[in-house]
Every structure is written in C-alpha cells, then in structure tokens.
Amino acid sequence: MCSHVLIAEDDRKQSAVIRQYLEHAGHTATEVHSGYAALEEVRRLRPDLLVLDVMLPGLDGLQVCRILRHETDLPVLMLTARSTEEDLLRGLDLGADDYMTKPYSPRELMARIRTLLRRPRGPAAPDTHVLRVGPLVVDPVRHEVLLEGRPVSCTPGEFGLLAVLAGQPGRVFTRRQLLDLTKGTDRYISARVIDVHMGNLRKKIEADPGRPKLLMTVYGVGYKLADIPFRAAREDDRATP
C-alpha cells in the first residue's frame, strides 16, 4: 500500500537517501528541512508518517513533536545523533513512536517505517466502552482520561497503556505484553518505553508518584492497575479550582 511519508531532516543528503528508499518501496515522500516547515507540511499534507530529525533549525524535533501531539496521532519516527538514554527517552516522553540513532542502516530505517505504517492509528484498547476504576475514567472512543472528574492530558502512548490496564484491573501485565498491546509486535522498540510511560502517568494521576496507589509495580513481573471500585467525583471536588 502506498503511503505518504514526510521527511524532516536538515541534512539534505540524508533526506534524499531516505526519500529514494521510500520511493523505491512504492511510497510518496516529501522533504522539508526546518521545524517550522515540518509543522506547516504536516498540517497541509496530512501524511501517514513523519520521519523527524531532532536537530532541526528554527524549532527542533522535540519541539515539533510536542506541538504535534496536541493536534494529531500521526506516527513519528525520530532520528537523533544524541545517543544517551536520557535524550532518547525524552523523545518518547513527548510522544514519538520510535527513534533511531545516527548513523543508522537505511534498511533498518525502512523496516521500522514499515512497522509504523502497518500500525493502526490510535491506542489499542480491550474494548470501546468507558472504563472506570477507582477515581479514573478512561474513554477509548473520545480519547479522554478523567481523574476525579478532572481531565488528564496524556500522550498517545500513555493513553494506550492506561486503556489496556484499565480494561483488566488487577491483572498483571509484563512489559513485553504491554508493549505488544500498545505498540504492536515490533522487535525494535525497547520495553524500557513502558517504564517511561508509567513514570509519566504516575506523575499525572498519583497523589504521591513515589508511593503509587493505582499504577502498581509487581516486582520481577510488570505492572497492574489496582482493582478498586469506581468512585465518582463529588460536586464540590469538581468545583475546586
């Protein structure tokens, strides 16, 4: 199936190589060379995937990813010359679906692109009905999370993880199971991604992220959402600023 891939890379030689590989595989590719151009073309062209370099002039790739995640669930494959885990995980934290460090193999890049293009848009969830656990409401159709009646902003990766856990509260999932259910069976993506999403979710929904009561770690196994009865927010709670 032919897809349209937007390449945001300031190195024009690398950008041209990626475009040639994509076109050889039967896809359409568009090149841009700055962060502002990447935003403009995503909004105008509505591509199927964005290959996004971190070191872009104007807006860097991390800033572009942060902005786009408020607008679209477009798959984003991030390219970076930064090799430290902190830098790589920051991109995933902002909503990138995958990353590759430079230098990379064009064949491996194409394998990851194929995986992302096969992946359905939006997070995987066990069902489409509204999920209610403890103080949480997770609505897979509206892509909304409420904590005691208040909206919680989640990246697509965080939402997918929370939807899977809320669908079966009390069940322990391994990191690999959660990765397969939310990211697809992609051998290239590290299970470390799940730890990043879990840490971010705890900051958003736990009163004390260091001592979680909802998103529980089962040491040596994985994670679970505590199986506690749903409690609706009181009117005075919702009125509190």
Score class of each variant (00 low, 15 high):
residue 1 M to E: 07
residue 2 C to R: 14
residue 3 S to E: 04
residue 6 L to E: 05
residue 7 I to Y: 03
residue 9 E to S: 12
residue 11 D to R: 11
residue 16 A to S: 15
residue 18 I to G: 05
residue 18 I to R: 05
residue 19 R to H: 07
residue 19 R to P: 03
residue 21 Y to V: 03
residue 21 Y to M: 04
residue 22 L to R: 01
residue 23 E to C: 00
residue 24 H to W: 01
residue 25 A to F: 01
residue 25 A to Y: 00
residue 27 H to I: 00
residue 28 T to H: 06
residue 28 T to G: 01
residue 28 T to N: 06
residue 28 T to Y: 06
residue 31 E to M: 12
residue 32 V to L: 01
residue 32 V to W: 03
residue 35 G to L: 09
residue 40 E to M: 07
residue 42 V to F: 03
residue 42 V to G: 04
residue 43 R to V: 09
residue 47 P to G: 05
residue 52 L to P: 07
residue 52 L to W: 03
residue 59 L to D: 06
residue 59 L to F: 13
residue 62 L to K: 06
residue 64 V to R: 03
residue 66 R to N: 14
residue 66 R to V: 06
residue 71 E to W: 14
residue 75 P to Y: 05
residue 76 V to D: 07
residue 79 L to E: 05
residue 82 R to Y: 10
residue 88 L to E: 10
residue 89 L to N: 07
residue 91 G to F: 02
residue 101 T to P: 02
residue 102 K to Y: 07
residue 104 Y to A: 08
residue 108 E to R: 13
residue 110 M to C: 05
residue 115 T to M: 09
residue 116 L to P: 08
residue 118 R to E: 11
residue 120 P to V: 03
residue 121 R to T: 08
residue 121 R to G: 12
residue 125 A to H: 13
residue 126 P to G: 10
residue 127 D to Y: 10
residue 128 T to C: 03
residue 130 V to I: 14
residue 132 R to I: 10
residue 132 R to W: 04
residue 140 P to E: 04
residue 143 H to M: 12
residue 144 E to K: 14
residue 148 E to H: 05
residue 153 S to C: 11
residue 154 C to W: 04
residue 159 F to R: 04
residue 160 G to H: 02
residue 160 G to W: 01
residue 162 L to V: 01
residue 163 A to C: 00
residue 165 L to H: 05
residue 168 Q to Y: 10
residue 173 F to G: 01
residue 178 L to P: 00
residue 185 T to G: 01
residue 187 R to Y: 12
residue 189 I to F: 02
residue 190 S to C: 04
residue 194 I to W: 06
residue 199 G to A: 11
residue 199 G to V: 08
residue 202 R to H: 11
residue 202 R to F: 14
residue 205 I to R: 05
residue 209 P to R: 01
residue 214 L to Q: 04
residue 215 L to Q: 02
residue 216 M to E: 14
residue 218 V to Q: 11
residue 218 V to M: 09
residue 220 G to Y: 06
residue 220 G to W: 08
residue 220 G to Q: 09
residue 223 Y to H: 10
residue 223 Y to A: 08
residue 229 P to S: 11
residue 234 R to Q: 10
residue 241 P to H: 15
